[in-house]
């Protein structure tokens, strides 16, 4: 009888111990989840702009969700990157959410994980609080237009009709660029940029769910493509090809 009582008490204590531990463990995971969703739309912009190379990487293990912005965001960022990029005012909110996230987690993660993927948009926010000096982010990768074109042709995220429709719109825009470079049209650079951004947004919105890596690649090539289009010599070379 006494033996049973002892085991019952120990089992009860164990149960109580578990019951106390449970709320503690999920709390940190639950609170960052909401900010991340809220910030998720904004972070892509900074990531797409600052760390294009990381965007193409597949998302790592989701275990460390709080720390994940540095590495895991690319997959989610891939889609929203373009749309968020258009709004343009994402940086402040993105870093804000990172700030709220970091204090609760930075100590434990800094001791546990040695910063696997540093080059992300969220990290500068933490760096501001901690170490001040940080090397500049890596420059934009070289644009591989043929590969990007082929991937767009091959992707199953966009239907045939949609691809054809997009191609029509790309051709129209290229025609406008051609006229601009030949000074045959009264269109301004700002107008061309707006049309270019709009078209890229359409592509990104079509790709973001079905082919996030390609969306990330397109998003990270945004500036490189623009430079190619707006430079008369590069454009001429492009048109010849």
């Amino acid at each position: 009888m006494r033996h049973m009582a002892m085991s019952a008490i120990s089992a009860f204590l164990l149960l109580v111990g578990c019951a106390h531990e449970k709320p503690v463990a999920p709390r940190p995971a639950a609170t960052p989840a909401a900010p991340q969703k809220a910030g998720g739309a904004q972070q892509p912009e900074t990531a797409a702009a600052h760390a294009p190379a990381a965007a193409a990487q597949p998302s790592p293990a989701p275990a460390d969700t709080e720390r994940a912005p540095s590495a895991a965001v690319p997959s989610s960022r891939a889609g929203t990157g373009g749309s968020a990029a258009a709004t343009g005012a994402a940086g402040a909110t993105g870093s804000g959410s990172a700030k709220t996230k970091v204090p609760g987690r930075s100590e434990s993660t800094s001791s546990a994980a040695p910063r696997p993927a540093a080059p992300s948009g969220a990290v500068p926010g933490t760096a501001a609080g901690g170490s001040a000096a940080r090397p500049a982010p890596s420059p934009a990768p070289a644009l591989d237009l043929p590969s990007l074109e082929q991937r767009l042709r091959d992707t199953r995220a966009i239907g045939v009709f949609t691809k054809l429709s997009l191609k029509n719109q790309v051709d129209d825009l290229l025609g406008e660029f051609r006229a601009f470079h030949r000074r045959q049209a009264a269109v301004t650079v700002a107008e061309l940029r707006q049309k270019y951004d709009l078209l890229l947004l359409k592509v990104l919105s079509l790709l973001q769910d079905g082919d996030p890596p390609l969306a990330a690649a397109v998003s990270s090539s945004r500036e490189a493509i623009w430079e190619m289009l707006i430079d008369p010599q590069k454009f001429e070379k492009l048109a010849r090809n």
Binding site: G159, T162, S165, K202
Partner: peptide, 14 residues
């Protein structure tokens, strides 16, 4: 489903 999505996207693109 695929064709419907394609058509919807095409219509929206216009």
């Amino acid at each position: 489903p695929a064709m419907g999505k394609d058509l919807a996207a095409t219509i929206a693109l216009q």
